[in-house]
């Protein structure tokens, strides 16, 4: 007996739908294929917004391109030329000073902040939220506050010092070479402390109280408890926070741009601001990309350190 055509078609469709469903289910059941599926959106985003600009940056750094004019391939000429550029060398020095001075301060003060916040105090949640403000507020906005504090004409600090008789004229916060780099470092430290504070606080709260109690019963002093109980417990998070902070500080831009734009006389230029000035303001996008790429080995070094540590912890 032959199956009516319509019925045959329905049966065929049903069985094919079922096969599809099974195949789909199988795809989702298998860990390997599910993993690939879940990775695809992230990988696409990374390729479009990270990998493409990165490789474009590498290509540009090997050309003499200007904005609006694709240049010729010049090999490593931009990299070599920059080594003879006084401003670039000054920028490199500034970047290292900026990162290496600020991160230890941020880590130390952040640790202190975390220890204070870890104590049972009233309104602790509110206080913890409040101390995060420098980290949460957009950098450009909070830096404007510092811009006013360091204002060469209307600085409240200068006003106070003059009225206390401690200074006869306004402090040249952003115009004196030493004070300028110190001032931008100070603003950076202020902004970065909460990050360390909250990360370390999370580490501190994971330390069982029993350990402290046991050490206290054994006669350990406060310092000994801190040294032998607290420090080993938070060592990992401090290291991770430090490495992340170094990477972010090296790649900073907004704070310097708002406060000094690299001045006075390039004393506060860091890689980000100098790359911006040359690449976008002076339109030498090839050289600008090269300046930015000089950051890459430094950032890669710290990123690898971070990954190695995390892998060891795993």
């Amino acid at each position: 007996m032959s199956v009516p055509r319509a019925l045959s078609s329905t049966v065929g469709t049903t069985s094919s739908d079922a096969r599809m469903r099974r195949r789909r289910a199988g795809l989702l059941e298998r860990e390997a294929s599910l993993g690939v599926l879940l990775m695809v959106p992230g990988a696409l985003l990374l390729m479009v917004f990270m990998a493409y600009p990165f490789f474009l940056g590498i290509w540009l750094s090997l050309t003499d391109s200007m904005i609006g004019r694709m240049g010729r391939f010049v090999g490593l000429r931009n990299f070599v030329d920059l080594l003879g550029d006084d401003i670039f060398l000054q920028t490199t020095k500034n970047t290292f000073v900026y990162a290496m001075v600020t991160v230890p301060f941020k880590a130390t003060l952040g640790l202190g902040l975390a220890l204070v916040l870890n104590r049972a105090i009233r309104f602790s949640n509110g206080i913890r939220a409040a101390v995060m403000m420098p980290w949460i507020v957009p950098t450009a906005l909070s830096t404007l506050g510092w811009f006013m504090i360091f204002d060469p004409v209307f600085s409240p600090i200068s006003w106070l010092l003059r009225h206390l008789g401690l200074a006869t004229r306004n402090v040249n916060f952003l115009g004196d070479p030493v004070l300028a780099i110190s001032s931008v470092c100070l603003a950076n430290i202020w902004r970065g402390i909460p990050f360390f504070g909250i990360i370390i606080l999370a580490g501190l709260q994971a330390v069982p109280n029993e350990l402290h109690e046991a050490a206290a019963i054994d006669g350990a002093t406060t310092w000994q408890r801190f040294r032998h109980v607290t420090v080993p417990a938070i060592k990992g998070v401090v290291l991770i926070a430090t490495l992340l902070s170094i990477i972010w500080t090296f790649a900073d831009f907004q704070l310097i741009y708002v406060l000094t734009k690299g001045g006075p006389a390039n004393q506060t230029h860091i890689f980000g601001t100098y790359a911006y000035q040359i690449g976008l303001a002076a339109t030498e996008i090839g050289t600008g990309a090269t300046i930015a790429l000089y950051m890459f080995p430094i950032l890669a070094f710290f990123a690898v350190l971070l990954l190695l540590y995390l892998r060891r912890e795993d």
Binding site: D151, P152, V153, F154, N172, A180
Partner: peptide, 21 residues
């Protein structure tokens, strides 16, 4: 000169002048 001028931008001198500094 006011020696803080090394950090002045296009608006600082306006403000310094208008404040009588």
């Amino acid at each position: 000169y006011d020696e803080t001028g090394t950090s002045w931008d296009d608006s600082n001198n306006n403000r310094a002048y208008l404040s009588g500094q």
